[in-house]
Simulated scan of single mutants.
Amino acid sequence: MIHFVLLISRQGKVRLTKWYSPYTQKERTKVIRELSGLVLSRGPKLCNFVEWRGFKVAYKRYASLYFCMCTDHEDNELEILEIIHHFVEILDRYFGSVCELDLIFNFHKAYYILDELLIAGELQESSKKTVARLIAAQDSLVEAAKEERSSISTIIAQATK
């Protein structure tokens, strides 16, 4: 089971967090501080797995972001690296060569993509095409709601004149 997902920039800024196990806000802050210090200080030639507090943390650096997932000690590390890579591939496909700014300005879409992949810390959908189709459907619903809202506000504006 995945306990949490962290996306951290090289400067130590948190870009995305998703918690699947209960942590208080104080514990979350402490976890982020500990793990960002641990992961960012490791050399590029070292392995992408760290044992931490009885858990395993698998991480992978893509461009300026570190994608970290904390799992149970007995989980397969290579599977977690594949889930991270799968998430990055879907982000790349959606944003067209995803970068840190895409995640900053469109964090809600990154969360939606992550929610399509993982539920309760377990892999839900392994098909990139299915996730892309679901995201496109969500985007069309959002656009339809925006159009409806603008047409309603136009009708209200005309009625109040």
Score class of each variant (00 low, 15 high):
Ser127Met: 09
Arg133Ile: 14
Phe95His: 04
Cys99Asn: 08
Ala157Lys: 12
Arg133Ser: 14
Val50Leu: 06
Ala132Cys: 13
Gln138Ser: 13
Gly96Val: 14
Val57Glu: 01
Phe49Lys: 04
Lys30Phe: 11
Leu103Pro: 03
Ala120Cys: 12
Glu89Tyr: 05
Phe107Leu: 14
Ile83His: 08
Ala110Trp: 03
Ile135His: 10
Ile156Thr: 07
Leu81Lys: 10
Asn48Pro: 05
Leu134Arg: 09
Ser126Cys: 12
Lys45Arg: 05
Val98Cys: 06
Ala63Met: 04
Arg33Asp: 05
Thr154Phe: 12
Asp139Leu: 10
Leu123Trp: 03
Phe87Lys: 03
Trp52Tyr: 10
Leu117Cys: 05
Ala120Ile: 06
Thr24Cys: 05
Ile83Met: 13
Asn48Asp: 06
Phe95Leu: 07
Asn48Ile: 02
Tyr59Arg: 02
Trp19Cys: 00
Asp92Ile: 09
His73Lys: 15
Ile113His: 02
Ser151Phe: 12
Ala159Val: 10
Arg33His: 07
Ile84Gly: 04
Lys30Cys: 10
Leu101Met: 13
Glu27Gln: 11
Ser97Phe: 06
Gly96Met: 14
His3Ser: 08
Ala120Gln: 10
Ile113Phe: 03
Ala110Lys: 00
His73Ser: 15
Gln25Asp: 11
Gly54Ile: 07
Leu16Ile: 02
Ile2Thr: 00
Ala63Tyr: 03
Lys13Ile: 09
Tyr112Lys: 04
Gly54Ser: 07
Lys129Tyr: 14
Val14Lys: 00
Phe4Asn: 01
Arg133Val: 12
His86Tyr: 08
Lys129Ser: 15
Glu77Cys: 04
Ser151Arg: 15
Glu79Ile: 13
Gln124Pro: 05
Thr29Phe: 07
Trp52Pro: 03
Trp52Val: 03
Glu148Met: 13
Phe67Arg: 00
Asn106Cys: 15
Thr24Glu: 07
Gly54Tyr: 01
Val57Phe: 00
Glu79Arg: 13
Lys45Gln: 04
Phe4Pro: 02
Lys18Gln: 00
Tyr111Gly: 02
Tyr94Thr: 08
Arg149Cys: 13
Ser140Arg: 15
Ala144Arg: 12
Asp92Asn: 14
Ile84Met: 07
